[in-house]
């Protein structure tokens, strides 16, 4: 494993707004990384700096140990941007040939045509006549035209239907198994969780969490128990709070909730103390909640 992407204390601001603040991370070759975050978290700005489209105000961005603007780097990366735009008045085949022509070791034309999923008739149409989804598929094929080592996708599945989405991720899996490094931005949690082996969670221009999906869940996720009690009162609350596996106690939806890192231990403790509770439910946190929790916490800190 070697480092292919390296960001060191990168900062970028536009006018008075700080878009990316002191971001550092390294991406190892062969990894699949999701940059996850709500809209406006600084994902696309970070990506643009990795591609050499934007200059950081501070810090450094290196791909293969070099500036992203070097031709050496450009020949080894493939990119699909958020707004796929394709030169007009060219046929699909012509644009694929043109793009392949830019790279020293282009991808096989047959494979690219397969990736577009277009019929032979569509391949001879002008690019401006394609539907939005078809354009995105073509954009994907163009990103792969140079048989790149590193692939960048900015919100790749926005605007794709379910079928196309599945096809896309299947291909990404295949590419990952061939040892390609993949980095994509998304605001869909599920995608990051399903596809990536590492999630870098962005919020308000900073990294708030970085690790495997399981890591992030176990580190930040708090499970909880909820129950009812006929003898609710300060007495019960005091006893609950004194139990060591329980970290917090609160009310929600007319039920008593306790947060814990380990629901088994918490249950044992509650029964062991013989507390008067019934109708117990176990809630395991979802990544969705983590996402919400983290981003909300950040907002609170910011205020």
């Amino acid at each position: 494993m070697s480092t292919v992407i390296e960001l060191n204390h990168v900062k970028k601001s536009f006018k008075n707004r700080i878009a990316v603040n002191d971001v550092s991370f390294q991406i190892e070759s062969g990894s699949v990384t999701a940059i996850l975050g709500p809209n406006g978290a600084g994902k696309t700005t970070t990506l643009s700096m990795m591609l050499g489209l934007l200059e950081p105000n501070q810090g450094s961005v290196k791909l293969f140990g070099r500036s992203p603007k070097e031709r050496y780097v450009r020949e080894r990366i493939g990119v699909m941007l958020q707004h796929v735009s394709i030169m007009d008045r060219l046929k699909v085949k012509e644009i694929l040939e043109l793009t392949r022509n830019y790279y020293p070791h282009p991808m096989d034309m047959e494979f690219l045509i397969y990736l577009t999923g277009l019929t032979p008739k569509d391949l001879n149409r002008y690019t401006e006549k394609l539907s939005g989804g078809q354009k995105r598929s073509l954009g994907f094929a163009m990103a792969l035209a140079g048989d790149p080592d590193v692939l960048f996708f900015d919100e790749p599945t926005v605007g794709l239907d379910t079928m196309a989405r599945r096809r896309f991720w299947e291909t990404v899996h295949k590419l990952a198994s061939q040892g390609k490094t993949i980095l994509f931005t998304t605001h869909y949690l599920q995608e990051a969780d399903d596809i990536a082996d590492r999630i870098i969670l962005f919020n308000q221009g900073s990294i708030v969490a970085d690790g495997t999906p399981a890591d992030i869940k176990s580190r930040i996720l708090h499970s909880s128990l909820s129950f009812l009690s006929d003898q609710d009162g300060p007495e019960l609350r005091r006893k609950l709070a004194s139990l060591s596996p329980i970290t917090n106690c609160y009310d929600k939806d007319g039920r008593i909730y306790v947060a814990t890192d380990d629901t088994d231990l918490a249950l044992a403790a509650i029964f062991g103390a013989g507390l008067p509770v019934h109708d117990i439910r176990i809630h395991s946190g979802s990544l969705d909640e983590v996402f919400e929790q983290l981003t909300i916490n950040q907002e609170e800190i910011a205020q």
Partner: peptide
Amino acid sequence: QGWSTFMRITPL
């Protein structure tokens, strides 16, 4: 339309 942006990413 973003075409020039794409061109800047290619090795051309």
